[in-house]
């Protein structure tokens, strides 16, 4: 008989389970990705000006990401609620920190792929480019912002799971909480691609903000998740 697995081992199990659920259901691939892409196209039609699009493209990419986060978080907890699985993990005494970290990891990986697709869409639709010297900043921004969004998304997803009106409650709680990520990631992305005279060095303080945000919500979320999903 093997010994009880560690928190990290269970977190990896939870993440692998969530990604396997997505592999079978293809909801993110067949619904969330097209939703994000359509959002980008609609932005392009609505603004309809190359100069404006060039200026606001980083913000549009992150705005489309935010909308997609809400859909992905709803989905992440819908699969738990459908047959009482989240309740079952609580009954089974599965470490809630591991559930939080695992679900955040799976959400983060899906978000990262989504962001890459959105950046490619921005290059195609908005004629965006990233100079070589901004590539490191852009990569670090993607990683930090993704961690922050996943940490907040799973925390508030857990908070609203099982509540009546959760579909409207989740965006109401999440969007104000992730405003610093939207602002920081947009500014850092602008600096990475040199939008409106910004230079790469302008982006590093924003990256610091994103990193602090991700760590604060990651640690706080792991500690708070258990009491939130407990009765």
């Amino acid at each position: 008989m093997n010994s009880a697995p560690t928190t990290w081992r269970i977190a990896r199990l939870v993440a692998a389970k969530d990604l396997r659920v997505e592999w079978h259901s293809r909801i993110a691939t067949n619904q969330v990705l097209p939703f994000a892409a359509v959002t980008m196209v609609i932005f392009a039609f609505a603004l309809d000006s190359d100069a404006v699009l060039q200026r606001v493209a980083p913000g549009l990419v992150w705005l489309a990401t935010l909308f997609s986060v809400l859909v992905l978080v709803q989905r992440a907890f819908a699969v738990e609620a459908e047959d009482g699985a989240l309740e079952a993990t609580r009954v089974a005494g599965v470490d809630p920190r591991a559930i939080y970290l695992g679900k955040a990891l799976a959400l983060g990986l899906q978000l990262f792929v989504l962001e890459i697709v959105l950046l490619v869409a921005a290059v195609v639709l908005y004629a965006q480019s990233v100079p070589l010297e901004g590539a490191l900043l852009l990569t670090a921004t993607l990683i930090s912002a993704t961690c922050g969004l996943a940490a907040v998304g799973i925390l508030y997803g857990g908070l609203t799971a099982g509540q009546s009106g959760r579909e409207t409650l989740l965006p109401l709680l999440t969007l104000p909480a992730v405003a610093p990520v939207l602002i920081g990631a947009t500014r850092a992305t602008e600096a990475a691609r040199g939008t409106a005279g910004a230079v790469v060095s302008d982006g590093w303080p924003w990256l610091g903000l994103l990193a602090v945000f991700a760590v604060a919500f990651g640690v706080g979320g792991a500690l708070a998740f258990g009491p939130l999903i407990d009765e």
Binding site: M1, N2, S3, A4, P5, I10, L13, K17, R20, V21, H24, S25, V79, E82, D83, G84, A85, E87, A88, T89, V91, A92, V94
Partner: peptide, 23 residues
């Protein structure tokens, strides 16, 4: 009243997940 299963996973994947949580 609920079974606590993940409906989009297979029988084997469900049992493996729950078993793995205790090693």
């Amino acid at each position: 009243h609920h079974n606590g299963l993940y409906l989009d996973l297979t029988v084997g994947e469900n049992v493996r997940f729950w078993g793995s949580t205790v090693g």
